[in-house]
Amino acid sequence: MIQLKAIHKSYQTDYNSLHVLKGIDIDIKEGDFVSIMGSSGSGKSTMLNILGILDKYDEGEYFLDGHLIKNLSQKQEAHYRNHLLGFVFQSFNLLAFKTAKENVALPLYYQKVDRKERQELALEYLDQVGLLDWADHYPNQMSGGQQQRVAIARSLISKPKVILADEPTGALDSKTSEDVMNIFKKVNKQGITVLIVTHEDEISRMTNRVIRLRDGIIESS
């Protein structure tokens, strides 16, 4: 599903160049449940951005579901993000002026799905994360755990092949973290590849495979 071959990435600042990823090789099979661990500065966020087609890499090759992700137009990037990937962020990143239902439905808007169908699907996915009763609430009326579940529902609605989660439990207490992780497990059982970036051992223990990054190279996988 995901293949990284000798990925290099540097950030140019005004005075020096920061070599963040120094040749990453990873092969993640479809339906895998993987966590990426590493201290801050290890390059795990950069790697996730590259996997999410939010950032470009300098060298190497990245295949996502068989497509080479390189030199794409912004439109193609948007298309792959929309159809293959689902994002879950540490800070949820819900749109504050939209209700839970509208937030969940948003990716389908960019797939040009009919409005009525969008609403129905959104309710269906909210039901899956146990928030059907909260469909018409705004994010600021919900707890962090609830918001994250809305965000997961949103990432799932476009039926992606891969879920990329960046510290999804970073802002949650341990009880809600467990709830969220259980949802991820459920999602994974449906055959969706799940990738979680985390620095918590309890979280990584719940995944099937742990990739450890250190100073831009893979320490173990």
């Binding site: 999410g52 939010l54 912004q74 439109k75 948007a78 993000r81 929309n82 990143n93 990716p107 960019y110």
Partner: peptide, 16 residues
Amino acid sequence: TKEIGIRKALGATPGS
């Protein structure tokens, strides 16, 4: 900016 970033992550094209 943030909203637009989110929309882009969710698959909004630059045209949209």
